[in-house]
């Protein structure tokens, strides 16, 4: 079982879009190690010929009648936005300096 070092946790945090302090990285790293050791037992069972189960009660080909129904108003959609401008969501810049 690979023990997670600080760099591994930093990588996970970046993939997860979570800004962590060094102290938090150490703390979560230790806890994730313990949890991973506890859950790695799944490898002990389940042979190659066992298919995966993705849903508890599978339903397939779910369709609905192709009828137009009203959607939320623009006012409702923007009502919870942290920032809005000109009837749109206002977001921070999406390109890095060198990409601009």
């Amino acid at each position: 079982m690979p023990a997670l070092d600080r760099d591994d946790v930093a990588h996970l945090a970046r993939l997860s879009r979570l800004q962590l302090t060094d102290a938090e990285r150490d703390h979560y790293g230790e806890q994730l190690d313990v949890i991973l050791a506890a859950v790695a037992r799944v490898a002990e069972v389940a042979a190659d010929d066992v298919p995966p189960t993705t849903h508890a009660v599978p339903v397939v080909n779910v369709t609905r009648p192709d009828v137009v129904v009203p959607c939320l108003s623009r006012e409702d959609v923007l009502s919870g936005a942290p920032a809005a401008e000109d009837d749109r969501f206002r977001v921070p810049r999406i390109l890095d300096e060198e990409e601009q």
């Binding site: 946790v9 945090a13 997860s16 979570l18 979560y28 994730l32 799944v42 389940a46 066992v50 995966p52």
Partner: peptide, 29 residues
Amino acid sequence: KRRIMLGTYALSAGYYDAYYGQAQKVRTL
């Protein structure tokens, strides 16, 4: 935060089969 990072780990390349894939097989059993 713990669970998001744990899930991100279990789904990441190289670990998917050993963790998430295995867990889904256990679900079948």
